[in-house]
Amino acid sequence: MDKNIFSAVKAADRAYLERAISSREAVPDQRDQNGNTLMHIAVELKRNELAILELLISNGWDVNSQNNLGATPLHYVALRKDSGRPVALLLLKNLANTQISTNLGHTPLHLACERYKLELVQVLLEHKAIPGSMDRNNNTPLHVLLLSQGRDTVAREIVEVLIKGGARLDTKNCEGNDSLLLASSRGFTRVCQLLLQNGSNPRITNDFGNTVVHLSSAAGHSELVEMLLELEMPYINVTNADGDTPLHLAVKNNHAEVAAVLIKKGSSIATKNAAGKSPLDLVSQDEKSIFAVKHPELIKLISSRKPKSKVPEEEDIGCLIF
């Protein structure tokens, strides 16, 4: 009978569910193989979800019940295709807890940020969600947002809401990345501008010694690299833990446009990394490399910046003969 009850909820069959509740064939402690209650299932319905949720709540179903993953129905609101706002408001009206974490340490706010659900983020923050809560990798909801797939414009709106909600911008995750470092790796120019306006440190480095220019260069975000270099921070030739400058990373990752920006802004083509390679070495070590073939204009630019060899003065030549 349990299987039929769960199927009835998935089919949004309110009449069947009412009969099952009346006959005690459907009870609050019933769970499927994943530990989901009927509440977890109802949250994701595409129709009649509010009516079915109200029916379950009025008959004793727990809005804060956790499944095998540690997720509550409120966590699953973020999985909906729509904003999830009406469903979230119904659960919150009935005392859903915004601070419960899954087994991986994710709160509903983490998941709302992961899915770029702006309205849901706003609702959760209005109901005591904690923007500084960390998952098992020390990622806050802000970190999760910037680690997930989405657009710069939407991300900026959500970041602004999180900042107003009290999110700290300098918190680092398990790899030492704060929000500015993550935003730079994604090429989110608008988000980076907002973070800098709100006090983010442009000189910040992660556990691997990478600056915002390292990360944006490695990912090929030329527009952001130009914007960051306009701050006139002295980090265009800063090296990371591997001895790489931003130019090393741009060349290694075949980002010719970024490399050109860095060189024009004064990046050194002679600085050697821990492997003893300069950006010039990485390009010129194989004249038949894909990089050289695809980007002859960059090779020309680099060649024009090659350090000139010192020619011994005439009085020194005699000494060199011996």
Rank of each mutant, 00 (worst) to 15 (best):
S148W: 05
S148R: 05
G150V: 05
D152R: 10
E157Y: 10
I158G: 02
V159R: 01
E160Q: 15
E160L: 14
V161M: 08
I163Y: 07
I163V: 12
G166Q: 06
G166C: 06
R168H: 10
R168L: 11
R168A: 04
D170R: 09
T171H: 06
T171A: 11
K172C: 14
C174T: 13
E175F: 15
E175M: 14
N177I: 09
D178C: 10
D178A: 10
S179F: 11
L182Y: 11
L182P: 04
S185M: 15
S185L: 11
G187H: 11
F188K: 00
V191M: 03
V191S: 01
C192L: 11
Q197G: 06
Q197S: 07
S200V: 03
P202I: 00
P202F: 00
I204S: 07
I204Y: 02
N206K: 12
F208I: 12
F208C: 13
T211R: 03
V212H: 06
V212I: 15
V213L: 13
H214L: 07
S216R: 00
S216M: 03
A218H: 04
A218R: 06
A218T: 02
A219C: 13
A219D: 09
G220D: 01
E223H: 13
E223K: 14
V225A: 07
E226M: 12
E226Q: 15
E226R: 14
M227T: 09
L228C: 04
L229H: 01
L231K: 13
E232L: 11
M233K: 08
V238I: 13
T239G: 05
N240I: 08
A241N: 14
D244H: 15
T245Y: 03
H248W: 05
L249S: 09
V251Y: 00
K252R: 11
N253M: 01
N253A: 11
H255V: 00
A256W: 00
E257N: 14
E257C: 11
V258P: 01
V258D: 02
A260S: 14
A260H: 07
V261T: 08
V261S: 02
I263C: 05
I263D: 01
